[in-house]
Design a binder for these strands. Structure first.
Lengths: 354, 354
DNA sequence: AGAATAATTGTGTGCCCACACACTTATGAG
DNA sequence: CTCATAAGTGTGTGGGCACACAATTATTCT
C-alpha cells in the first residue's frame, strides 16, 4: 500500500525472523531452507509486497550481457539501415549500466559472403544473444542452426523466416503493409486505373517477402468493389539510378496509362525523381523514412510512405533479449510493429519526436 | 575504446593518483580541490571516458522523486484518459528502481472544482515535479503559478497553453492534426462536397484548441485547388448519446448533402453509430483509439482516426522529468508527438505492439 | 618557531542485493 | 554415545558511488 516506502530484503528478514541469506535462498530457490521457514518467508514477501531492487541486484551480480547484431551496413547516414542501428544503440545506452553490450556486425546488403563471415565472427564472440536481419534465407538458417546448438537465443528483425526457431520476430506484417499501400494508392488515383508494382532487387534476397507483398497488394483490389484495376508488375535488378531510369522509360513507353506506383523497397524516391524529371503525374507509395524519400514526400512526388518503425525494431530487439536475460521473460513469437502511414503533413513529427 | 570494460571512479582515482573522494568532489564540483589535481582529474575522466554508473549512484543516493500527475479520470477502462495513464504507469515501472514515484490525482473531466481541489492536494504533497493536462485554462494558470513559486517543474500534456512557463509541452500540434483530418476526409469523399466540423463539449474546456482545429481544417480546403468545399460547423453541448442523436437529426434534416464529418474529440463513434442506425453513407474522421472508435473503425463507420500517441505522452512526460532530475537535462519547450493515421488495416498493430 | 587555522585529501560507511563461506543444529552410522 | 555428515541458517564481502568525517598538509598569525 505505502507506495513511497521501499521494502528491502532486510525488511522481509525482520518480518519473518530469519536472516537475509535465507530470504535470498527462497527467492532464487536455491534450496536448503526448511519448509516452515520457506512458507513463512513466502508469506512475508507477499504481505510486504517485496520486489528485489533491480538496481542493487544488477550491481551485486555484476553481470555482462553481450548481444551481437548481424544487420546490413548503412553506406551513408540517412540510409535505411542506420535507423534500426540507432534503435540498437539507443537500447544499449538505456541498458548499459545494467551490463548490456551491443556489438554490431554489419554485412554488405547484397553480399552473402560478408554475411557469412560476419556470422562466423559473431559465433567466435560467444554472445549471450543475437539479433539478425535474415535477408539471406539459406545463410540465415544455417547461422541460426549453429546458434541453436550453442543455445544462444536469436531475434529476427525486419523480415521473418516463417517456421524458424527464433526467440521472436520483430518487424512488419509485410503482406498487410502492401494491402495498406494498395488502399492508400487507390485513394489518390482516379476511377479506372492501371497501377504498377515495382520491385528493385539486386540479388536473391527476400524473394518470398516480395511475393507476399504482391499478394497483399492484389488482395485489396480483389476485395474492392467498383471499377476493376489493372495491376502491372515490373522488376528491376538494380537500384542504380541510370538503370532504373532506363527501365522505367522502357516500361512507361509501353504502358501509358499507369496512374500509380507501389515501390516495394525504400527507393521510392528514384521513381518520384523519374516522374518529376519527365513531368509525369503518377502517384507513388513506398516504404521507409529515408532522407531522399522524405524530400520527395515534401516535394509531392511521393504521396504515401509506410514506415515500419525501424528504430523500434532495433530497440525492441534488445529489450526482448534483456528481459529474457534478466526476468527470464519470453516474448511472443511474433511482434508486429506499427505500420505508420506517413504523409507530408505528419512526417515531421515522426522525425523530430524522440 | 574497450567497450566491454567499465571504468569506475576507482580507475580514475588510480590514473590521477588521488583518492575517490577527490574525484567525487570534482564530479559534483563541490570545491575544495587544488587546481592542479582538478585539472589532472578532469583530464583523466576524459581520457578514460568515465561515466558514473547510474545504478550505483542511485543506490548510494537513495533518492526519491515524487511526481504528481493532474489528469482527468477515466470513467471506464477503454476511456481515452486511461491511455496516458498507462504511459505514466509504464514510465513509473521503468524508473521505479531509480526512486521514481508517480502519483496520479484524477479530476472529473468537466468539473473545475475537482480540478482545483486535486491541484490543492498536489501542492500539499510537495512533489519534485508535476504533470498536468491543462484542460481548464484559467485554473491551470493559477496552479502553475503556485508551482512556480515553489520552484516545482511542470510538464503539460495533451493540450498546450501557449506562452506558459512550463518545462515542456508534450502533445499534438492540434491545428496540424485537423489539417490532416481534412486531407484524409477529402480523400474519401467525392468531388463537390459538404463537410461538417462537429464539436461535442460539455463545459468551457479547451475552447482555444477547438478554434485552432477549425482553422487547420479550413486551411486545407482553402489551399486545395479544384472544386470548393462547403464546411459546416455544429457544436453540441453534450456527449450523451440521446442528445447527440437528437441534435444530429435536427442538423441532417436541414443539411442533406453532408458527405463527411470531422469529429473534434474522441466521440466519433457516436456519430458513426448514428449513421449506421439511420443508414447514412457519410464518412467520418475523428480522434483517438478508444475502444468504441476501434469497433466502429472496423465496422467501417469510421474511416480515419488520428491518434496522438497518448501513451507516449504519459511516458515521455515522466521521462522528461526524470532526465531533468538525474541528468539536469532540460527538454525542448515543445515536443509534438507523432500523429498516427489509423485505418482499419493498421489499427491492430497499434493496439498490440507494446 | 609554535600554535591555530584553513585548505586539501583520504577513509569508511551505507545504499540493497547475491553469493561464498562459516557456523549451528539435526540426523544417521558405527 | 561419539563422530561424521547433512541440512539449515547467519555473516561478511563486494559491487560503484555519495557523503560525512577523519586525517593530512599548507598557510597565517603571534
Amino acid at each position: 500500500m505505502e507506495k513511497s516506502k521501499k521494502v528491502t530484503i532486510q525488511d522481509v528478514a525482520n518480518y519473518a525472523n530469519v536472516s537475509v541469506g535465507t530470504i535470498d535462498r527462497v527467492i532464487h530457490n536455491r534450496g536448503k531452507v526448511s519448509p516452515e521457514k520457506k512458507q513463512k518467508i513466502e508469506e512475508a514477501i507477499k504481505k510486504l509486497n517485496f520486489n528485489p531492487n533491480l538496481i542493487a541486484r544488477t550491481l551485486a551480480l555484476g553481470s555482462r550481457f553481450l548481444v551481437c547484431a548481424l544487420i546490413p551496413s548503412a553506406p551513408h547516414s540517412g540510409h535505411y539501415w542506420s535507423i534500426p542501428k540507432d534503435g540498437l544503440e539507443k537500447a544499449e545506452n538505456m541498458y548499459r549500466d545494467f551490463g548490456m553490450v551491443v556489438d554490431i556486425f554489419p554485412f554488405h546488403l547484397f553480399d552473402e559472403n560478408s554475411f557469412n563471415s560476419q556470422a562466423q565472427k559473431i559465433l567466435e564472440q560467444n554472445p549471450d544473444g543475437v539479433i539478425i536481419a535474415p535477408l539471406f534465407v539459406q545463410e540465415s538458417l544455417e547461422f541460426v542452426k549453429k546458434l541453436e546448438e550453442k543455445n544462444i537465443p536469436c531475434v529476427f528483425i525486419d523480415s521473418d523466416i516463417p517456421g524458424q526457431k527464433s526467440l521472436t520476430y520483430i518487424g512488419p506484417d509485410v503482406k498487410q503493409s502492401a494491402y495498406i499501400a494498395a488502399k492508400l494508392l487507390n485513394s489518390v488515383v482516379g476511377k479506372e486505373n492501371e497501377l504498377l508494382i515495382l520491385h528493385m532487387v539486386k540479388g536473391y534476397e527476400n524473394a518470398a517477402a516480395l511475393k507476399r507483398m504482391e499478394a497483399g497488394f492484389i488482395e485489396f483490389f480483389n476485395e474492392k468493389k467498383g471499377d476493376p484495376t489493372r495491376i502491372h508488375k515490373l522488376t528491376i535488378n538494380s537500384t542504380n539510378k541510370d538503370v532504373v531510369f532506363r527501365e522505367l522509360t522502357k516500361f512507361y513507353i509501353r504502358n501509358q496509362n499507369i496512374k500509380g506506383v507501389f515501390v516495394t523497397n525504400s527507393k521510392a524516391f528514384l521513381v518520384s525523381d523519374f516522374h518529376l524529371t519527365h513531368e509525369l503525374d503518377i502517384r507513388v507509395a513506398g516504404y521507409d523514412l529515408v532522407q531522399e524519400n522524405i524530400n520527395h514526400l515534401k516535394k509531392g512526388g511521393i504521396d504515401y510512405l509506410i514506415s515500419q518503425s525501424p528504430q523500434k525494431q532495433g530497440l525492441k530487439a534488445v529489450q526482448s533479449l534483456f528481459e529474457l536475460f534478466v526476468y527470464k521473460k519470453e516474448p511472443g513469437k511474433i511482434q508486429n510493429v506499427p505500420l505508420d502511414i506517413i504523409i507530408r503533413e505528419n512526417v515531421d513529427f515522426y522525425i523530430n519526436f524522440n
